[in-house]
Design a binder for these strands. Sequence first.
DNA 1: TTTTATTGTCTACATTTGAGACAATAAAAT
DNA 2: ATTTTATTGTCTCAAATGTAGACAATAAAA
Lengths: 244, 244
Amino acid sequence: MHSPSEQDYIEQLSIDCVIFGYQDSQLNVLVPKLNFKGDFCALPSGFIYQSEGIDQAARRILEERTGIKDIYLEQFRVFGDSPRTNKSFLERLIQLNEDELGDQHFNRKEFDWITRRFVSIGYYALVDVNKVVPKKTGIDESINWYPVRALPEMIMDHAEMVQSALHTLQLNLDEKLIAFNLLPETFTMRDLQELYESIFDRAFPRNNFQKKILDLDVLERLEKKFTGAANKAPFLYRFRKENA
Amino acid sequence: MHSPSEQDYIEQLSIDCVIFGYQDSQLNVLVPKLNFKGDFCALPSGFIYQSEGIDQAARRILEERTGIKDIYLEQFRVFGDSPRTNKSFLERLIQLNEDELGDQHFNRKEFDWITRRFVSIGYYALVDVNKVVPKKTGIDESINWYPVRALPEMIMDHAEMVQSALHTLQLNLDEKLIAFNLLPETFTMRDLQELYESIFDRAFPRNNFQKKILDLDVLERLEKKFTGAANKAPFLYRFRKENA
DNA sequence: TTTTATTGTCTACATTTGAGACAATAAAAT
DNA sequence: ATTTTATTGTCTCAAATGTAGACAATAAAA
């Protein structure tokens, strides 16, 4: 969150990003924790410059707030109930941080600007956690991956946003062939299956999962991956990008 | 479009409605034509009051602009490319209507407000054309149903919005069981099939369509409909609302 | 050389989908 | 009254797809 100015940004309209990553056989969401007393967790969010499109704004916000760029990103829903404002959250934050906060962080004008009723466009992002190093910004105390089904408490309606994003991800997974954005360049069939299982939170039969995926005809089979384990080595696969 | 005031509405954020109706075996869209020289067609649109949610705003806008209420309505996508503004459209409108337009319709302040870059939330609506009488407002010259595949030229990106709404309708049709919102209370299986064919713009085999729909187990069969035609009379069906 | 754990694939079976056929029937034509 | 016509409702069979069990292949440890 840069200090917002009334001229540069569209007022009362924001973008919130739900960033999915896959690690340790779990679907995770990247959640920054604000550098204030009180354990305030909030999805990476920001505002839209007058001169940029909303998709462009989402990419910029994502990079400014996390350092992540060049990834799959798509809008999934608008959140705009009438009493939707972060006023109560910010008041509580200021109350808990009175000593540290002189007038340095918020002046009155900025406070009024940012505590108005906001409509927010939800975007979800899919990242390969091996390619990406999330970087916290000055306003963050930390930025961590949390299992999508064990998230910390978050401000406002951000928990609901994650659920809505997860639902959209499930609906689009096969249709748009986007699972591969969550995996490294090469992966085994087991890797892909465990990813599916973590997204849908249920088991798939191994034999039929393999058949279903191979029948999609979007993977190329590479050399085997010798892990050192006492069993048959699995093949590595790569997503053929001409199918994207 | 009421005269917008900077205080009442969220700035630079609008709602556009794609209203689908079914008539004469065709999927139609309701398109008002503005009461100005120059054949300006625009989807019913409006702004969001500070005190109302976006869904609520969409319902209000729909009723104010068309008289339609109590129907299926859902957001489908946000349109927000950076140069998105109706400035060029309004300048052309004013140019073509200089004689009629004193300063009565737009003062400078309103013109500036309304010609800024706008982000718009697209909603699509499904109506039973027999239950609904679209009413034009003062700013409309007319309000007419057009076949979704033979629309008049529309301002800005409104044609693209209709295509996007149609795509969402197709994706959600079976999943959410919303086709019945486009039909009268009771209908024959042929009615329903022709509706599906107009939405997907392709034919369905009659025998299997009937089987598929009946297998959904959401219809109740009523008495037969005697049309006077020289053939077997079809049953009437009704959508059981406990399935909605 | 045997054992162990896992992979890749095959087959058998069940379910769903697609295409053709046909009896039922409302009203017109004979 | 009987035949004809157009359309409806449903059945059957084949094809495609999905599901479950089985088993050979194999990398490394025992």
